[in-house]
């Protein structure tokens, strides 16, 4: 089985979700949009519709964070990196049309997908951050992955729900990072 075909199916499925939502997305429609047969789609996703939709949500979530990682990778230091991740991340969540649409029309269906995905996303961000945190002087009791885990949680929490923070305001973001997110490290 080829990655290209898999990618093509996921892209078509994602396009389908964008148009009709998670619940109404079908294997037939994904097959039609990708120009493949139903049988081929089932060969790649034997679990059928459920597996297909879950894989498409995971696929887009990974693309989302890959884009974010690329966007922020030029930042000078760990503080600048996290500040950029918060600002760009929140912007990207708000500007993500499909996410916003599904959040309003099918929040429960989305949450079911994100349950498993949430843990994986946390792992992705943690993996991205760990090498950066390995370069700063951490308290003796905290390993770089544990530090990255905390920072990843804070980033996720804030880009999902900024709360009292205005993440479009550079000064506020700076304060947030300098206190709650990295204040415990002498950066």
């Amino acid at each position: 089985m080829s990655d290209d075909v898999r990618e093509k199916i996921l892209e078509a499925t994602y396009g389908c979700i964008a148009r009709v939502g998670l619940a109404k997305t079908t294997v037939e429609e994904a097959a039609r949009l990708s120009g493949l047969s139903r049988a081929t789609v089932y060969r790649y996703f034997p679990g059928g519709k459920d597996e297909l939709v879950r894989a498409a949500v995971a696929w887009e979530a990974q693309r989302f964070f890959a884009r974010l990682a690329t966007d922020v990778s030029g930042a000078g230091d760990i503080s600048a990196l996290i500040e950029a991740a918060l600002m760009r991340g929140q912007e990207a969540v708000e500007g993500h049309e499909v996410l916003q649409k599904v959040l309003h029309t099918e929040p429960d269906v989305l949450m079911r997908q994100l349950t498993v995905e949430g843990t994986r996303i946390l792992g992705l961000i943690r993996g991205f951050l760990t090498p950066f945190l390995a370069q700063v002087p951490l308290p003796e009791s905290v390993s770089a992955p544990a530090a990255a885990d905390y920072v990843a949680r804070m980033i996720l929490s804030h880009i999902m729900a900024p709360g009292s923070w205005d993440l479009t305001d550079r000064e506020q973001v700076h304060e947030l990072v300098a206190t709650q997110i990295l204040g415990w490290i002498s950066v």
Binding site: E140, S141, V142, S143, P145, A146, D149
Partner: peptide, 9 residues
């Protein structure tokens, strides 16, 4: 700080 807990990762 607690000396062990956060090291288990």
């Amino acid at each position: 700080y607690p000396q062990t807990t956060l090291h288990e990762v």
